[in-house]
């Protein structure tokens, strides 16, 4: 009987802990957004965060997108060959990349790169009292540290996804024309004939949401980190895990909203 009670108590404790984190995260997010909107503003910090999150993430996002496009071209060609529908390859590549693979893969890469870096930086600032020092110098840490990163995340991700879309389609084009024998002009024609504005815009909207989620997760776990180097390490891990899971869950939710009509 006691062991059953202990198990129920453990489940209850976990549930309360999850709810507490969810509530704290929601309050943190709302506070962050309010601090984006209200002055004072720190444009230089936003630009620096944009450079770190956006520009420095370009190589990894570009490589991921090119190879994803190449794989999709190869897989869809071999799959559709069974139904003699190889001509759909170009359409499949461009729709997969713009709707799903561009934003999701760029998001996952960004969460591993920029989200982890944010959590580590803010976590180190927390455990070395730098965040408290900001407060004692009349500077709101949410406004100075968190708001610029959240804003930069929302701006940087769609820009990265535009690059990822172009390079993903290019990857598919290279495989299709060099390896699978497609005529370049015909492949490009088939690519654009199926593509609608909604496909691209939905991907960019997802990217903006994912950018916010990555920055929020990195900032939240870094800001709340405790307990020295170990605390910073676990904050970094938690930031990447939370952002990755939220990206995949929100991707499904947003796909439902955009396309299940």
């Amino acid at each position: 009987m006691n062991s059953i009670l202990r198990a129920v108590a453990a489940i209850g404790r976990s549930a309360i802990s999850v709810l507490r984190v969810a509530g704290d995260l929601a309050i943190f997010a709302v506070t962050g957004v309010i601090n984006i909107l209200l002055p004072p503003y720190y444009p230089r910090l936003v630009l620096r965060a944009l450079f770190t999150m956006g520009f420095l993430s370009l190589p990894v996002v570009a490589l991921t997108a090119i190879f994803a496009g190449m794989v999709i071209a190869l897989q869809s060609y071999t799959g559709f060959a069974r139904f003699s529908a190889q001509s759909a390859t170009a359409s499949i590549v461009v729709l997969s990349v713009t709707r799903e693979l561009g934003p999701v893969l760029a998001g996952l890469m960004m969460s591993g790169r920029a989200g982890a870096a944010m959590a580590a930086e803010l976590g180190t600032m927390r455990v070395t009292d730098q965040i408290d020092a900001l407060t004692t110098l009349n500077t709101n840490p949410m406004k100075y540290l968190v708001a610029p990163r959240l804003l930069a995340g929302v701006i940087a991700m769609p820009l990265l996804v535009i690059v990822a879309d172009i390079l993903g389609v290019l990857g598919g084009f290279i495989v299709a024309t060099v390896k699978l024998g497609f005529v370049p002009a015909s492949y490009i024609h088939n690519t654009f004939i199926m593509l609608t504005t909604e496909d691209v815009v939905s991907g960019l909207a997802k990217a903006a949401v994912f950018g916010f989620v990555i920055a929020l997760s990195g900032c939240y776990h870094g800001y709340r980190s405790r307990g020295g180097a170990e605390g910073v390490g676990s904050a970094t891990t938690s930031a990447v895990v939370m952002a990755s899971v939220l990206i995949l869950a929100l991707d499904y939710g947003m796909t439902e909203i955009f396309f299940s009509r």
Partner: peptide, 10 residues
């Protein structure tokens, strides 16, 4: 405020 470890901004 002078913090124990300085807390200088890296």
């Amino acid at each position: 405020m002078l913090f124990q470890n300085g807390a200088l901004f890296d």
